[in-house]
Design a binder for these strands. Sequence first.
RNA 1: GGCGCUAUCGUCUAGGGGUUAGGACGGAAGAUUCUCAAUCUUCAAACCCGGGUUCGAUUCCCGGUAGCGCUACCA
Length: 516
Amino acid sequence: MSSPSHPAASGQGPRVRFAPSPTGFLHVGSARTFIFNWLYARHNGGTMILRLDDTDVERNTEASVSSIFDGLRWLGLAWDEEYKQSERLKLHRKVAWAIFEKGLAYRDFTPAHAGDSDKSGAQGAWLFNPGMPDLSRAESDRRAAAGEPFALRYRVPRETGRQVQFVDAAYGVQVKAAADIEDFALLRSDGMPTYHLASCADDADLSISHIIRGQDHLTNTFKHVLIFEAAGVNPPQFAHLPLLVAPDGTKLSKRKHGPVVSVTTYRDAGFLPEAFINFLCLLGWSPKNDREKMTQQELVDAFSLEGINRANAVVNFKELNGGRASSPVSQDVGASVPLVQGVYPEETFDLKAVWLNAEHIRGLAVEDLSARLLPIARDAGFMVDSAKMLKVTPLIRERIKLLRDVLTAADFFFVDQLPPYDPAELIPPKGDAVMAKKVLEKAREVLEKTEFKHEPLDQVLRASAQELGIKAGQMFQPIRVAVCGRKNAPPLFETLEVLGKETTLARIGQAVQRVQ
RNA sequence: GGCGCUAUCGUCUAGGGGUUAGGACGGAAGAUUCUCAAUCUUCAAACCCGGGUUCGAUUCCCGGUAGCGCUACCA
């Protein structure tokens, strides 16, 4: 353990890791942890490591592994090295037994007790199983040899009155009396390492220099410091991140809060990964200069551990259907399959995330945005090619907040036949059906002989309005509704230009029919 | 119960012994364009409570309260 097995460990720059346990989908809190680690590595020219902490065979699932990779792939932040704890078991056991040999751990033959932890009960703190720490080595060896199952526990130096301490980059100096730390397990009775042991053994072996993780591990860190010490290595530096919580203040969970906490939900809802990353970065971290919208490079440049906050941050989402705890399908990790079919309304998400997404969308080049919109429209069944999408994109770029909005903002560009709409919509403001009809007939007449370019369309339609003695707005609205099927749409001339003369005239013709 | 962490507008946050407590999202009002957006302007909105320390605390200290985390042979 003192000699790192990984060759890259000899290089320089910080080595950080993201170590999810594949027991659920990748949720937004984990994603943020990954992002902060990645940012730290990239800012400092270090190494980003992905390590699957899969020592809990009971709870690991393949679906979870693929959900994590799905989410990570979407974020688009690459890692440099990849490991699986389940392939490193020998190392973990070696480290555990070395600690035992030093007398810093002991066998505990007490049968495993399940989840009867009465955390709110009035019983004092549990520290160890009576008798077990004092078992003589001979007795311990004898019972083990006899085949009696046991867990290996760390022998916390409790009676020495010693204080365990470490410095956290976000929370400062942390001190805790060893007397308050229980004899935690290193190895389970089935020989599998516990999280604490495996994590520390691997962190040491992989020469992790900085551990950046959720604050739920802050108090576990005292145990980790003890393990590093027992293993004879210097502990890495620590930086704990404030937790991401739901609007009700409780920690994010799929059981309780539904798909809004899963990364793939954001992907499926039409978030840009760069916007999602931007949003997550602003939760629990601040560049301290009032910047909000930031590109990936700006984030890399600005990121530092000093900007990390200490208070939990709420992800201000609205629960779908008032919480989905009772949904039977939401229980298992269904990889990337959306648990709630259909679309997620934008109000489902933290509106700042939605706003940032819109900001990033507006900042995208037309070609880029267009290419991202195309597959979404196609998957929804619209017949579109990239040339058409390229023409439509500038018209909707400032009108969509989520990529999926292309479906509702630009649908009329993609269909042959407009879905039915209320003919009353054709009536211009302060006008009547007669005016609507006059407008549409006039439009059909003049448009027939107009070139479908912005300028000529502008001229001819304004001139027509004047001729009819009505306002431009009164002229435009019936036409807009006739070609778009609704009142709210992109600017008229550009729209007509993209739609083309044939489609425009056909739709106006249909509108003339409907208005009477 | 024990141990630990935290506390600025509804939300994300900046700030910090003396400030009109700043920005952003969201909200309201207005300007603007052919509608909708976008954009611009304006407005409402916060230092958890109580004690200290101090000439002066939102800021520093203590206590309370509240929230969260850990307290498994989960991670």
